[in-house]
Computed example of a mutant assay.
Amino acid sequence: MAFSVATNEHLIRSNIWSSKLKEVFLEDLVAMKWIDMVEDFPDGDTINIPSIGQAEVSDYAENRPVTYTAFDTGNFTFTISQYKQTGVYITNKMKQDSFYYEQLVAKFVPNMYRALAKQMEVDALKVGPDGQTPNDPNTINGAHHRFVSTQTSEVMGLKEFALATYALEMANAPMTNLVAIVDPSVEYTLKTQSNLTSLQFNPKWEGIMRDDLITGSKFSFSILGWDVYTSQNLKKSVNETIAGPDSSTSGAGVANLFFSAAPDARPFIGLVREQPHIDSEYNKDYQREEYVSTSRYGFGLWRPESLVTIITDTDQVV
Rank of each mutant, 00 (worst) to 15 (best):
S4F: 10
S4D: 08
E9A: 11
N15T: 14
L21E: 14
L26F: 11
V30N: 07
A31M: 07
M32I: 06
M32N: 05
K33H: 08
D40R: 10
P42H: 08
G44Y: 13
G44H: 09
I49R: 06
I49D: 04
P50C: 04
I52T: 11
Q54F: 13
A55H: 12
A61R: 15
P65M: 02
Y68N: 12
T69Y: 14
G74D: 07
S81R: 11
G87V: 07
V88H: 06
V88T: 06
T91S: 13
K93F: 11
Q96L: 14
Y100W: 14
L104E: 08
V105D: 03
F108I: 10
N111T: 08
Y113I: 11
L116Y: 01
A117N: 10
V122P: 02
V122M: 10
D123M: 09
G128M: 02
P129T: 01
G131K: 08
T133C: 06
P134L: 00
N135T: 06
N138G: 00
T139K: 10
T152D: 02
T152F: 03
T152Q: 06
F161K: 00
A162I: 03
L163H: 00
A164C: 05
L168V: 02
M170E: 14
N172P: 01
A173P: 02
A173C: 14
N177C: 07
L178R: 00
I181T: 10
P184F: 01
V186F: 02
L190R: 05
K191F: 13
N195T: 14
N202A: 12
M209W: 09
M209N: 06
D212M: 13
I214H: 15
I214T: 15
K218D: 09
D227Q: 13
T230R: 09
L234V: 07
N239L: 04
T241W: 04
T241H: 07
G244Q: 00
P245Q: 12
D246V: 07
G253T: 02
V254A: 01
L257H: 00
F259D: 02
R266V: 01
P267H: 08
P267C: 09
G270D: 03
L271Q: 08
V272D: 09
P276T: 05
H277S: 15
D279N: 12
E281M: 12
N283A: 05
D285E: 15
D285M: 14
Y286L: 14
V292W: 04
S293D: 03
T294Q: 12
Y297R: 00
G298D: 04
L301I: 05
T309P: 05
I311T: 07
D313L: 04
